[in-house]
Amino acid sequence: MKNIWSLIKKEIRAYFSSPIAYVVIAGFLLLVGYFFYSLVWWFNAQAMQMAQNPYYAQQININEMVFSPLFHNMSIILILVAPLLTMRLLAEEKKNGTDELLYTSPLSVGQIILGKYFAALVMLAVLLGLTALLSIFAFAFGNPEIAPWLTGYLGLFLMGATFIAIGLFFSSLTENQIVAAFLTFVTLLLLLVLNWVASSGSGTWRSVLGYLSFSPHFEDMTRGILDTKDVVYYLSFSFFGLFLAHSVLQSRRWR
């Protein structure tokens, strides 16, 4: 555990001693801030109109009209951001020869991978935590429900954790950070839109693709429904990514 902690500290320091952390945080906040602003603006306009009619006035819901679409937008932005957080994790060590230091220290491959994974999770938590500050305005001036907001963020975190595990796997495959980032991006995007194909298919094929895709599992969480099935999906997908990365590093050394 101590070993993992040492690696986490080192990785987080590495994020902040290069421009990556600052650029990613700034860009992410800019995009999320813009989406939040435009959604609130749209919500405002809608609310004004709907308030005229007592029937529609019942249906004004800031959770469904602002947060749910915001979380969807954020999940798309995370697909762009996650590869940037993971691309250097293993690829850079290999390229610079620093992996030789790690592997000749009393550390296991599992510890190395977990240290890097957790460090990237900390970055993810920082990113999401900073955007949560935006919601303060919604809570201060509106009356959103807290439960769907919390499950939405939990869903984003779980999904981001899955993205990072997949990114870590691609980073283990190559010395080239750009290749690692691009392969991660392609894979994540495919997995996100897999259910589009599924919706036009039929039978088993349809349900398998639908289950594999990220988005259906996220859908409920943005509405405040927390299903263990979805949590298990993200956790097992993350575990699978880490397992693949572990196998790649292990086999590299035994070749």
């Binding site: 610079n96 230091l101 009393p106």
Partner: peptide, 21 residues
Amino acid sequence: VLPLYLDMTVSGYLGFVAEIK
């Protein structure tokens, strides 16, 4: 190939190596 993290300070790097060793 020297296994150095170029973005670390000399003492910070040695501290990290001390930890993982």
